[in-house]
């Protein structure tokens, strides 16, 4: 008998995780060596992007691996860290999109997206490990933030929405038209 909802995120073996981190580290090392010693080889593809794509794949593989003893406590922390990362990610994504639209950024470099994704995965992994090692109770509670923060969250999203509406309706008229 097991909780299938919580087991969803554990697909690999704990040994696979070590291997995945090792491969990610090797790829990162190669990327650093290429960058430091300027060892660029003429190829049809961007080595920097390919290396970071592999690092991302290895990190995804690593964070979806089971612990040595993968019990309900571990699964609860894994699920909590996953929720926490989403809670952090959503407002920052909204903010990022708003800033990009404000400065009329139309092309986002692929490498930047890869860096962001790697950062998110690392944040998730750090929250999961630190939370579990220090027994942070709030991470496994149903509500990740106290009820008092509800108003603050609504104000934050309200302000972002108001800014986007203002930017869409009046920015061109006020600055470009002037």
């Amino acid at each position: 008998m097991e909780n299938r909802k919580l087991s969803l995120m554990s697909v690999g073996d704990y040994k696979t995780r070590r291997l995945a981190f090792l491969f990610a580290f090797i790829h990162l090392l190669i990327d650093i060596i290429i960058g430091v010693f300027d060892l660029h080889v003429e190829t049809d593809f961007n080595t920097h992007i390919i290396l970071h794509f592999f690092i991302l794949l290895m990190l995804i593989m690593a964070v979806t691996c089971k612990e040595r003893v993968d019990d309900e406590f571990t699964q609860a922390y894994r699920y909590g860290a996953y929720k926490f990362t989403l809670v952090v990610l959503i407002p920052f994504s909204v903010l990022g999109v708003y800033i990009a639209s404000f400065f009329n950024v139309t092309k986002v470099p692929v490498i930047l997206i890869l860096y962001v994704l790697e950062g998110i995965i690392l944040l998730y992994f750090i929250v999961y490990k630190v939370g579990m090692l220090t027994n942070k109770k709030w991470l496994i509670e149903e509500r990740l933030y106290p009820k008092d923060y509800n108003l603050l969250i609504k104000i934050f999203f309200g302000m972002i929405t108001a800014l986007i509406i203002f930017r869409t309706l009046f920015f061109d008229l006020l600055f470009v038209g002037a």
Binding site: V69, D71, F73, T74, M132, L133, N135
Partner: peptide
């Protein structure tokens, strides 16, 4: 068959 952390 759980971890020591779980018991703690």
């Amino acid at each position: 068959k759980v971890s020591r952390q779980t018991i703690n």
